[in-house]
């Protein structure tokens, strides 16, 4: 009788092998590269190259998140743009930011996610600025370069121009990425997500 009333459940016993979270890293890397590549093919003026980093950080923690971000850019350097690896530090900062904010439920509602994305954008813009100044002379070749060029033409110094450009453009990009990451996680069966035993997922209403 008990069995008749039992809800049909196909979840099997949880099996959290040690390597499980590490196995997710290559997949997070590929997600970063895939999303970034699709965006660039569609010529949409945002980067979207940290979705995998955000997702893996939420699922598997800080170490896995940093590894995903850094390795994404190293592999991206091999596959697409060999200057990407020099920006790997920004990805590490993104993972750190997401990890600490997620602990405080900063992605639990859409509004909070938007605010977190804006904050992430500002920080990412500031962290990337010295690399853009030193490596690219302030100009990365993207649409944002127009903003930088204008600021430079008005007499602002190069570092300030790049920081202001980043602070203006990055929040939009990073907010989209945070929203997309959360939306994607909400589409994953909750039983899959529970395997990660992640406090971040619990606190942000994802399981």
């Amino acid at each position: 009788m008990e069995q008749e009333n039992e809800k049909i459940s196909f979840s099997s016993t949880l099996y959290p092998p040690t390597q499980f979270k590490l196995a997710l890293i290559p997949l997070g890397i590929a997600l970063n590269l895939a999303v970034g590549t699709i965006i660039s093919i569609l010529k949409i003026p945002i980067y979207m190259d940290a979705v995998g980093t955000i997702i893996v950080t939420l699922l598997a923690g800080l170490g896995a998140g940093i590894a995903t971000g850094v390795l994404s850019f190293i592999i991206g350097g091999v596959l697409t743009n060999p200057v990407l690896p020099y920006f790997a530090g920004t990805q590490a900062v993104i993972a750190i930011y997401v990890y600490f904010l997620a602990k405080h439920a900063a992605f639990s509602t859409t509004f909070k996610t938007i605010l977190s994305g804006i904050g992430l954008g500002v920080i990412a813009g500031i962290v990337s600025a010295p690399i853009i100044v030193y490596l690219f002379g302030g100009i990365t070749g993207s649409g944002r370069s127009l903003i930088t060029a204008y600021l430079l033409a008005t007499g602002k110094n190069i570092l300030k121009s790049v920081i202001l450009t980043g602070a203006a453009a990055e929040p939009i990009d990073k907010t989209f990425q945070c929203l997309l990451a959360i939306w994607l996680l909400k589409g994953v069966p909750k039983s899959f997500l529970r395997r990660f035993k992640s406090l971040s997922l619990e606190r942000n209403n994802l399981i």
Partner: peptide, 23 residues
Amino acid sequence: FPFLLRPLLTWAIRSANDRTQLW
């Protein structure tokens, strides 16, 4: 684009689980 990513992510998580068991 978004409909492409959702199954991709679910597949990625399931693959991670199945592959580590295989390893």
